[in-house]
Write a protein that binds this DNA or RNA. Sequence first.
DNA 1: ATCATTCCTATCATTTCTATAGGGTATGTG
DNA 2: CACATACCCTATAGAAATGATAGGAATGAT
Lengths: 151, 151
Amino acid sequence: MHISAKIDYAMRALLTVANGGDDPVSADAISREQGLSIKFLESILNDLRKSGFLQSRRGANGGYVLARPADSIFVADVFRQLDGPLAEVRGLRPETAKYEGAATNLGNVWVAVRASLRNVLETITLADLLGGELPTQIKELLDTPDAWVSR
Amino acid sequence: MHISAKIDYAMRALLTVANGGDDPVSADAISREQGLSIKFLESILNDLRKSGFLQSRRGANGGYVLARPADSIFVADVFRQLDGPLAEVRGLRPETAKYEGAATNLGNVWVAVRASLRNVLETITLADLLGGELPTQIKELLDTPDAWVSR
DNA sequence: ATCATTCCTATCATTTCTATAGGGTATGTG
DNA sequence: CACATACCCTATAGAAATGATAGGAATGAT
């Protein structure tokens, strides 16, 4: 799974905005705090606004605030709006890919992949990430030291 | 997560070959059974051979056989050889991406994503898929009807 | 007015993805 | 030995995605 720069930047931008509370946070401020290219960031902020995650205010002292509470924005929501479905096979939904002969059961793998991604991405909110308290089953995933090493 | 045509075709090819037992299965036969473009398939079969999954035999009655037992080839192995690491963020390993300020905890999400992918892809073998019996925790993932609908 | 800031459109270089083409090479069979 | 079969290698290429950059228009606060 390739997690794109776009999603990574979008999450960082959302967290920075959420961290600012009710005060608008400007693109420039986000760009500086997170070290992101301003122009690329601008286009992502625009996507986030159009997707209903952010509200913007123009002019002096303008910037962005969350359009919804931080505990109602799940990581999965951001993925779906900016990158499309969590899991696709050759551009198809996992459950729609049909297989013949020896590959009959392969579809089950792709559906299981999607289900396991959902278990992570649909349970974590912006508020969780700001507070540093992740859901129990995520903590369990991270508690095995094995989770932190490359294979 | 985009599961590429390459991985999809590779899995289907491996399963078809595995299904043939000790008899070599030709690229042409795989292409016909699975409905895959012959030339693209050939290049994938070559990758699979170089990666140590397949053994090839040239000439009449040639084709491919598994180079290792079907119960020792995990889906994750195929991903890693053909597509690289299971999860990457901007081309980096999940645990190496560092985050500042409000995004401090974001890295945990990516590590959790990888861990959950491992729970699926590192537990399913070619033999499981041929036999139609998947590991218990995968069955549990698939048993909820929810797993089969799009979001 | 002026300045800060978002918003819009266009462009673009690079890489990845999904192939296709053509011929070279090895091997088993008759 | 000839021949058919089938893998093997290199090169090319169109399309899409990725990760930006540029310039200026619109808006809002003071």
